[in-house]
């Protein structure tokens, strides 16, 4: 008897709310606990849309199918409810929040993860935050900066990894975390994810990417190719290398 998958996407169709064009046209995908999956695909294939729908972005509307997280259909849940169940999305374009420090943001988020009536121990939180930053080789002063305000591309992505480290999700979806990063920043981010996965091998990671280069640092268990709103092929890590040399042309459906 097999364990309940952490994420099970069944025949998922979706579109941008207020528009008619379908972006996802029947996605099927199953992630077992602790696995690392990569979804690769060309621009416009729908891979980022899938990431946002799993996290609950209101701009996208699922029209058919299911997204089950640990057996529970989550499509009707608000993004915060999903987050509290353990789903985390590392954003491709993290939002700037002037006037709110990372520490304050994380403290508020941690408090939100507690049950009603439970109070976050502030000293305990402070210790945890410092410990998480140490794990990721980050300077403690980083937590005093305002969330993404004036951050470089690399700093924004590191901030995403820090939040992931603090919140300890069960499922981390990384939406093009590698885009716009130079090789040093890419390594920092990849090492962070690897450390977190080593620390908690039950954490499942879904990497959404256009390029293979991030996968040079984080070895996926499974690679899926998404084209035209569907998973068109799945395989092992060798599939990523194949895509790198041969590109996505072979998967383009004839008109």
């Amino acid at each position: 008897m097999s364990e309940i998958p952490i994420l099970e996407v069944k025949n998922l169709h979706a579109k941008v709310a207020d528009e008619d064009t379908e972006i996802l046209r029947g996605v099927d995908l199953t992630l077992a606990k602790g696995e690392i999956h990569a979804i690769m695909g060309p621009n416009g294939s729908g891979k980022s849309t899938l990431a946002k729908i799993v996290a609950g972005h209101p701009a996208y509307e699922p029209t058919e199918g299911q997204v089950r997280y640990l057996g529970q259909d989550v499509l009707e849940l608000d993004p915060d409810e999903r987050a509290r169940l353990g789903i985390f999305l590392a954003f491709q374009y993290p939002v700037e929040i002037p006037g709110v420090s990372i520490a304050n943001f994380m403290r508020t988020a941690m408090q939100a993860h507690l049950d009603e009536g439970e109070e976050l121990d502030l000293f305990d939180f402070q210790d945890q935050l410092l410990e998480r930053m140490e794990l990721l080789d980050m300077d403690p002063s980083f937590a005093e900066r305002h969330v993404n305000d004036g951050f470089s591309g690399g700093e924004k992505k590191r901030n995403e990894i820090l939040q992931m480290a603090v919140l300890r999700p069960k499922l981390a979806v990384m939406d093009e975390t590698d885009s716009g990063l130079d090789i040093d920043a890419l390594q920092v981010v990849a090492n962070g994810v690897k450390k977190l996965h080593a620390e908690d091998p039950e954490m499942t990671v879904l990497i959404i990417t256009h390029y293979q280069r991030l996968l040079n640092y984080i070895q996926p268990d499974h690679v899926h190719v998404m084209v035209g709103g569907r998973i068109v092929r799945s395989g092992g890590p060798e599939l990523a290398e194949e895509l790198e040399t041969e590109g996505y042309e072979q998967f383009r459906a004839p008109a």
């Binding site: 972005h57 993004p79 915060d80 999903r82 999305l89 954003f91 939002v95 929040i97």
Partner: peptide, 14 residues
């Protein structure tokens, strides 16, 4: 919407 979604995706109610 993007601001709110970002914060909510970390567990904060709207």
């Amino acid at each position: 919407q993007d601001h709110l979604f970002y914060l909510m995706s970390r567990g904060l109610p709207r």
